Amino acid sequence: MKREETTKFLSELAEKHINPYNDPRIYWAREVTFDYATTHAIRVDYMKFKPVNNTVSGIEKGDFYCYEVKSSVEDFRSKNGHNFIGDYNYYVMPHDVFIKIKTEIPYKVGVYCPCGNELKSVKKAVRSDRERPVSEMLLMMFRSAKRDMIRT
C-alpha cells in the first residue's frame, strides 16, 4: 500500500474509532490548528473532547484526546506531527511500524494499530498535564469542525 493510501486508511479508522456511530454528542475535529499565523503553529491530526457531563464544572474537567497518524517509519521520524497537547495522546500507525519504532515512543503516548477494520490499543496512553485552557482547545476544535462543515 502506498503512503497516501495507508494514511487515508488509518485516518478512516481513526474517525471510526473516535465516533463509531456518527453520534452528534461526540465532540471531535480533524486537522486542529493552534497558534495559527505564528512561526510556531501546530496542527493535531484528530482531537476529541469528552466532558465529564454538560455542567460548567463537567466541561472544565473534561478530557482532550489527541491522535497523530503516522503511516511509515519515515513519517514517524519526521519533525512534523508530534503535537501532543491533550490529556491523552496517541499515535495511529500500522503494526509493523510500531514494532520498528516502539522504543522511540514517549512513555505517556499511547498507540493504536489497525486490526481488521478497527483500531486496537497496543500501548495505553498515560494522562498528561495539559497546558492549554479548555476554552482555547474547544475554540480551535470548533473552528476546525466548522471548516469541515463548510467544505461539505
Rank of each mutant, 00 (worst) to 15 (best):
K2T: 15
K2C: 09
K2R: 14
K2E: 14
R3I: 09
E4H: 05
E5H: 06
K8L: 10
K8A: 14
F9M: 02
S11Y: 11
A14C: 14
E15I: 10
K16C: 02
H17M: 14
H17N: 13
N19K: 07
Y21K: 11
Y21D: 12
Y21P: 00
Y21E: 12
N22I: 02
N22H: 10
N22E: 12
P24H: 02
I26V: 15
I26C: 10
Y27W: 15
Y27K: 13
W28Q: 06
A29Q: 04
A29K: 04
R30T: 01
R30W: 00
V32T: 05
T33Y: 02
T33S: 14
F34R: 03
F34S: 05
F34C: 06
T38Y: 05
T39W: 09
T39K: 13
I42E: 08
R43C: 07
V44Q: 03
V44H: 07
M47N: 09
K48Y: 02
K48Q: 14
K48D: 03
F49V: 09
K50C: 14
N54T: 15
S57W: 13
G58W: 02
I59V: 15
E60N: 13
K61F: 14
D63H: 09
F64S: 08
Y65C: 12
E68Y: 14
V69C: 05
V69E: 08
S71T: 14
V73E: 09
V73P: 13
E74C: 07
R77C: 05
R77P: 07
S78V: 07
S78W: 10
H82T: 05
I85G: 01
I85Q: 01
G86M: 11
D87W: 09
D87P: 04
Y88H: 10
Y88M: 05
Y88P: 02
M93C: 13
M93W: 10
M93T: 13
H95V: 09
D96F: 13
D96P: 06
F98S: 09
I99F: 10
K100E: 15
I101K: 11
K102Q: 14
K102V: 06
K102D: 08
I105A: 04
I105P: 01
P106I: 04
Y107D: 12
Y107Q: 14
Y107N: 12
V109N: 05
V109I: 15
V109T: 08
G110D: 07
P114N: 04
G116T: 01
E118K: 09
V122L: 09
K123M: 00
K123A: 01
K124P: 01
A125I: 04
V126T: 13
S128N: 11
D129M: 12
D129P: 02
R130H: 06
R130S: 03
E131S: 15
P133L: 12
S135I: 05
E136F: 02
L139A: 12
M140C: 04
F142L: 07
F142H: 03
R143S: 02
R143N: 05
S144F: 00
S144G: 01
K146C: 02
K146P: 00
R147Y: 03
R147F: 01
D148Y: 11
D148N: 11
M149N: 08
M149K: 11
M149V: 11
R151G: 00
